[in-house]
């Protein structure tokens, strides 16, 4: 779903209460499609499932260390280069503003590899 499409993707890892809540809120935010760019939410039940795929995506974020993977609660991918633009850590307070900000960060201008 990620690489075949040009969506902003919000990936949430975990099945605890906070993760569920974030999935719910991120999904609710996905009804907004500014400039007609679609938002999607992917829920990964735990850090073991899709580990290598998630790590591959997360390493596109500058400064991310693979050792910190267990601390990742969610991350957001840009629509065209599918790079991680924001990581939400387990020790963060996550509210609507944080989720909205994550979507906005993911939607920022991407590296200039496209004609438009």
């Amino acid at each position: 779903m990620i690489f075949e499409n040009e969506f902003i993707v919000f990936v949430v890892i975990g099945t605890d209460h906070i993760s569920k809540k974030i999935v719910e809120r991120a999904d609710s935010f996905a009804d907004d499609r500014p400039r007609k760019v679609v938002r999607k939410v992917i829920w990964v039940p735990n850090h073991d499932l899709l580990r290598s795929e998630c790590l591959e995506l997360l390493t596109t974020s500058a400064g991310f260390q693979a050792n910190d993977y267990e601390k990742v609660l969610a991350f957001v991918l840009s629509p065209r280069l599918h790079e991680t633009k924001d990581i939400i850590w387990r020790d963060e307070t996550v509210d609507d503003l944080r989720i909205g900000y994550a979507y906005v960060r993911a939607g920022k201008r991407e590296r200039n590899v496209f004609n438009n």
């Binding site: 400039r35 007609k36 065209r80 960060r105």
Partner: peptide, 10 residues
């Protein structure tokens, strides 16, 4: 979808 516009806006 207008990625350029989205980038500018965001």
């Amino acid at each position: 979808p207008d990625f350029q516009g989205l980038g500018d806006l965001n």
